[in-house]
Computed example of a mutant assay.
Amino acid sequence: MASAPSLPLFYNGLEPLSSEAHANYKVRPQDTAPFLVGQHAIPVTVDEFPLVQRFMPIVFSVGEQPIPLALMGLNEGVNVFVSDEGRLTETNFYVPAYVRRYPYMLARLRPEAEELSLCFDPTSPTIGAFDEGDALFENGQPSELTKNILSFNESFEQAGARTQNFMTELTEMGLLMDGEVSIQPDGADQPFVYRGFQMVNEEKLVDLRGDQLRKMSQSGMLPLLYAHLFSLSLMRDIFARQAQLGKMPQPQLQPVG
């Protein structure tokens, strides 16, 4: 089992799914996601931008290898779309694929391994040697459920590769800049200033040469950038939701990513 510090968001451990070790394992449905409580920034792929931008702001993390993030809250420990029990509070809402793939993921069992193996988080309450549930294996072979899980994770990895290429191109073109959003609520003496994330520099984007813009439009990159830019207006909606929930910090500089 992998050690917790090296694992991605949500995962407490990773164990390769095996027809021998987990022959009697089943999956039981769960209508809550406790692991999502208090998680305010969720990784998303570029494939999801058109859907995500309808519900959540899309920003980019800071650092040398930035990734796209959907904001489910503006402050650490705040998720305005999930109850304290981990139940979605919205009926019409897009749940990012990163959330939907948990507790599974494709991973290399050894650093030198070329192939990815389907693994799961053994601490998840949704998978185990239960009496009831949907079987992961039937007669020693992967069940239809397991095949579907594998297919979803393979699609996620492919989307992740496209996202990595997108971010490489975005970084090389120098279109990212430090982001800042200032929100002044009615009656507040000081504004809430949010930083700690990156966003596309719209001025640089507009000033690109015609052939560069045409290439980005043909590749599908340009609409994705504008999906990100349009989504930023939702930061004020997230702020308003936090205020309604009584989950506001003191007005000062706030890290987002």
Rank of each mutant, 00 (worst) to 15 (best):
A4G: 08
P5R: 00
F10P: 06
Y11V: 03
G13I: 01
G13D: 15
L14N: 09
L17Y: 05
N24A: 13
P34R: 00
F35S: 09
A41R: 05
A41E: 04
P43G: 05
P43D: 06
F49H: 01
P50A: 06
V59D: 03
L74V: 01
G77F: 04
G86V: 01
L88N: 05
T89F: 05
T89Q: 15
F93I: 12
F93G: 00
A97V: 07
R110H: 10
E114T: 09
E114M: 10
L118V: 08
T123L: 10
P125N: 06
T126D: 13
I127A: 12
I127C: 08
G133K: 07
Q141M: 13
S143F: 11
F152C: 03
F156E: 07
G160Q: 08
A161R: 09
T163A: 03
Q164Y: 08
E169V: 12
L176K: 01
G187S: 05
D189H: 10
F197W: 00
E202N: 08
E203T: 14
E203I: 15
K204N: 12
V206N: 13
R209W: 08
Q212A: 14
M216D: 09
L225G: 00
L225M: 14
Y226W: 15
L229D: 01
S231H: 01
L234G: 00
R236I: 02
F239S: 01
Q244P: 02
L245D: 03
P249A: 03
Q254G: 05
P255Y: 00
V256Y: 02
